[in-house]
Nucleic acid binder design. Sequence first.
DNA 1: AATACTACCTAGTCTTTCTATGTATAATAT
DNA 2: ATATTATACATAGAAAGACTAGGTAGTATT
Lengths: 112, 112
Amino acid sequence: MAQRYELMKGNIDSLLLCLIGRQPMYGYQIIRELESRSQGYFKFKEGTLYPALHRLEADGLIIGKWQVLPNGRQRRYYHITDKGYLSLVEKRTQWQELLAAVSLIMQPPVNT
Amino acid sequence: MAQRYELMKGNIDSLLLCLIGRQPMYGYQIIRELESRSQGYFKFKEGTLYPALHRLEADGLIIGKWQVLPNGRQRRYYHITDKGYLSLVEKRTQWQELLAAVSLIMQPPVNT
DNA sequence: AATACTACCTAGTCTTTCTATGTATAATAT
DNA sequence: ATATTATACATAGAAAGACTAGGTAGTATT
């Protein structure tokens, strides 16, 4: 992410909630999903993602459940909670408000 | 800013460069300008703004010049530099790219 | 005389993200 | 057979940004 990581501060949680809100997902899957859906823009590192997931779980916004695959391997699928869904709705609104505010600064309305 | 400050991480510099790029401004003025232009959304604290200005100056993106008012009071007006202008153009592009990427996650295109 | 506004500044704290590394199994390539 | 890549999780420590809280000082208002 390098030079543009600063732009993302505080937005990762929204993205994660958004994806997990559609269907339960596990960490590794989320990393690839974010990259493919954003056409390569997002390339999250494990060191960013897993702590973020743990934080969301600690806040009660998601719940992780271990699932064992036929081959014996384990995945931790995260499900969104009611609280998480409420938070997602709120974060969406906040994101829109931020966009509006930034637009007003970046592209100020013409003076009358 | 309270609950929404996290959304702003990394974007403050862009806003400051944008304003100062239009005309030289001093810190206190920037705080009020950001609030009025954003219709009350942005309420920057001094503890956020002044360090940000010093950071931008240390990076050579803006230059501060003390100006003495008729009543003897001092203001530090910041001017954008050539380097700062280039950075602003770049940051604008990055912001647009981020918006596009976030949109792809938040409002995924319908599957065909 | 007291309060509010203008105008600058910084120290310390908190949170987030990154880099770097570690563990372990499965699948593929040589 | 062995080496490499992909899958899948995890954490420690460092870096950076923004906040809280406080400070200084002159001017204007009540």
